[in-house]
Design a protein around this nucleic acid. Structure first.
Lengths: 198, 198
DNA sequence: AGCACAAACGGACCGCGGTCCGTTAATGCC
DNA sequence: GGCATTAACGGACCGCGGTCCGTTTGTGCT
């Protein structure tokens, strides 16, 4: 009688593959910062990382995913703070305060990484279905559910997340010259208006 | 002494240029409908129109602008209705009703032309600075100014326009399966919540 | 160590959006 | 109609994102 076969959950990535992923990420981070995201081609990243172009695409799929991967550490930090960090961003504060803190954190993140985040949104397929965005969506829906437990908050989530996209942010902040402070105040006002009856 | 030179305001477009523009628009409209926007290359449009590729780009600049040009008649109709048409979309109705009617009209338009509108948003540079979007922005700001004459409504305009973009619409309607009715109800609810104190 | 296998590699290749520039032909003037 | 001017044309060309496939190399087994 055979023992049940335990599926190797992680087929274990080869050592050179791991090393190459890191070299690509480092190269991308550096070139994005040095020359601007828009002026950095995938070939340039591959060359700077010392790998073939095929390797870049095998590791990251496409340009948008590479951009997201570059920001992965930052994204993880944010999610960690949202889920387990100190109030008001983390648990413990009233839901509305947490929504406001979330908006603040997102806008700070956009202020710092708008170029790369915009690239991730623009480059390919709907950014709205990326894993990070899904987490933000779940988080926002969760907080709204506490404020309005009996309502259908699905559309409201969209309304609250749309102004936190890089597209909208870049237009407001860099084409129309609004300040970060104004955006935070505007977002806070919006949250309060939309949840006034709770 | 010389007479002041009067600049010929419209350098008058050559007849063949006018004809080619129309043939390109017709070809694009047909191919978009027949094969889908995403499967229609600029070369294909040029070939179908019987002109060189250079002509397509000289007339329309880039792919996004061509997409907008294809919808120009529809956009003009909408703007006409907003500015001079019957209430509640046109003048005469209370501002909130006009906002709701505007959302309805925009969502109907998205329902009909989402593919082409998405192309226009995605293809190049910020759609948020296109001429049609600027008109929608002015219109919304104008209506909000009637509801809240003493407030700074700039951010509110962004919040109200973001859910009416093709990006958001496509995600809601086609990836997440919401109905047009739900979107209209959600938008109406949002407008009412955001302008409740007026 | 030697081997067999699959994972990973890398660069030639493709199609597309967009540009450039030598050629063509519509227009306005005589 | 003939001519000069110049807008308009069109397709070769470019760079980029993304794919494909023949080759290399790390890995686990013996």
């Amino acid at each position: 009688m055979e023992l049940p076969v335990v599926q190797p959950v992680t087929p274990k990535e080869r050592a050179d593959a791991v090393a190459n992923r890191q070299r690509i990420l480092d190269a991308a981070t550096r070139l994005f910062a040095e020359n601007g995201v828009g002026c950095t081609s995938m070939d340039a990243i591959a060359a700077a990382a010392g790998v073939g172009k095929g390797t870049v695409f095998r590791r990251f799929g496409d340009r948008a995913s590479l951009a997201l991967a570059v920001l992965d550490a930052s994204e993880t930090t944010l999610q960690e703070a949202m889920i387990r960090g100190p109030a008001p961003l983390g648990p413990g504060a009233p839901p509305r305060d947490r929504l406001l803190a979330f908006g603040d954190a997102m806008l700070d993140r956009l202020e710092e990484h708008h170029e790369i985040l915009l690239e991730a949104e623009i480059s390919h397929g709907s950014y709205l279905r990326s894993e990070p965005h899904a987490v933000h969506r779940t988080h926002t829906r969760h907080l709204l559910a506490q404020l309005r437990p009996d309502a259908d908050n699905e559309y409201l989530v969209d309304v609250l997340l749309a102004p936190l996209t890089a597209r909208v942010f870049t237009d407001q902040r860099h084409h129309r010259g609004l300040t970060l402070k104004q955006l935070k105040a505007g977002y806070a006002d919006t949250v309060c208006r939309l949840t006034r009856d709770c």
